[in-house]
Design a protein around this nucleic acid. Structure first.
Lengths: 209, 209
DNA sequence: TAGATTGTTAATCGATTAACAATC
DNA sequence: TAGATTGTTAATCGATTAACAATC
């Protein structure tokens, strides 16, 4: 029997994103060492080699990694060598800001549909994306085969929205509502709770010295 | 010699925020067990007891924790039993959304000043907060003794803004610009990189089954 | 060959969980 | 007292770092 896939530390994945960006920005010769990449990303060289080695051997001892090759492989691993359609639920202040966020498009994330329940917004366009009524969420997500969503609705509505999304094939959610949502097995929900981030800062400032 | 303060796991602090909210929402009797709190927060009872015990003994064996007491202590530990003034740098889409974010005020964070470099915005008010030119950043932050800031400016400007803030007494920063900023020792910088979050989701969807 | 750098193993560090004696 | 639940210790699990043999 082949060896089982080694379990990869969860924190490796976001670091791959960081390496990838450094590689995209790196305009020097065709080869880069873990040491140089360490300098560019602030992670240790040992960690970089370890992280990369989870996915195979792409380096050459004594030389380093071929930049284009490594970049391509990381893009494949992360699944960002393509465009992803994303549904945005909630077109209030935060939702509208996310719709305009340039970084998403740059990294290949396309907000393909936006939803709200505010009659005044429905039918209007934001950044060329029409705002639809939230009752159309199921239909549109299913039709467009959208697998990824961002949630920027009030806490009270978030769980209902999540349930609807999961029922219609969305399996990955970035949630800004301050709840601990119930997901499911083959489902990934990342929660960003902005107040909690500030509370971490408050604690830092508040610590006895 | 007294025993040194035990090193507290970094991940304890955001969990305290979660416990705290559950306690605020908890309207039952005056006492709560780690088991009940576990049910409300989704963390294990053992972890909850462990987390709380880092800061002293507030529970009664056989009974549980007095809700009001525990809540008060957590607020103290987190340093959120007060209002914190926050500077917002960058009043674009994201910045404006953060200025309107209700969760901040609810949790005691007050955006006391906002800055941008767009002539069209300067002098206008957003949610009753006047937008100032970024060249006033040093002066205002120093005058108002602001210790906490949120950064929502483009990547190219972020490091410069951070340097200015640190030079003027701000020691805790929530940074939305997609850079790995250089901070300093007595400084806390939390980075939220929205594209990286979506890349984590992309990787999840892309994983071989 | 000599020098450089990878990939990998073992050691270390840190966080979580399980178990239970102490306590009310 | 009997039952319940804390606080704490030891065991487990997971992630990072250091070191170096293998390799170009």
């Amino acid at each position: 029997m082949e060896s089982l896939r080694p379990k990869i530390s969860r924190s490796v994945i976001p670091r791959l994103s960081v390496y990838c960006r450094a590689l995209v920005a790196y305009k020097d010769s065709g080869v880069i060492s873990s040491d140089k990449l360490s300098e560019l990303t602030g992670r240790t060289a040992a960690q970089i080699r370890r992280d990369i080695a989870y996915f195979g051997q792409f380096g050459t001892p004594g030389k380093g990694y071929v930049v284009e090759e490594l970049k391509k492989r990381i893009l494949e691993i992360l699944g960002i060598n393509r465009i992803w359609d994303v549904a945005l639920v909630g077109a209030g202040n935060l939702g509208a800001a996310l719709l305009s966020y340039k970084g998403f498009k740059e990294q290949g994330f396309n907000i393909a549909a936006a939803f709200d329940n505010d009659r005044n917004k429905i039918g209007k366009k934001l950044r060329n994306v029409p705002i639809r009524h939230i009752k159309e969420l199921s239909r549109v997500v299913k039709n467009k085969k959208i697998q990824m969503a961002i949630i920027a609705v009030p806490a009270e509505e978030a769980q209902k929205v999540i349930d609807t999304l999961l029922k219609n094939g969305v399996r990955a959610i970035l949630n800004f509502a301050p709840i601990r949502p119930a997901g499911g097995a083959s489902t990934e929900i990342i929660n960003i709770d902005l107040s909690i981030e500030l509370e971490k800062l408050a604690h830092f400032l508040n610590r006895p010295k």
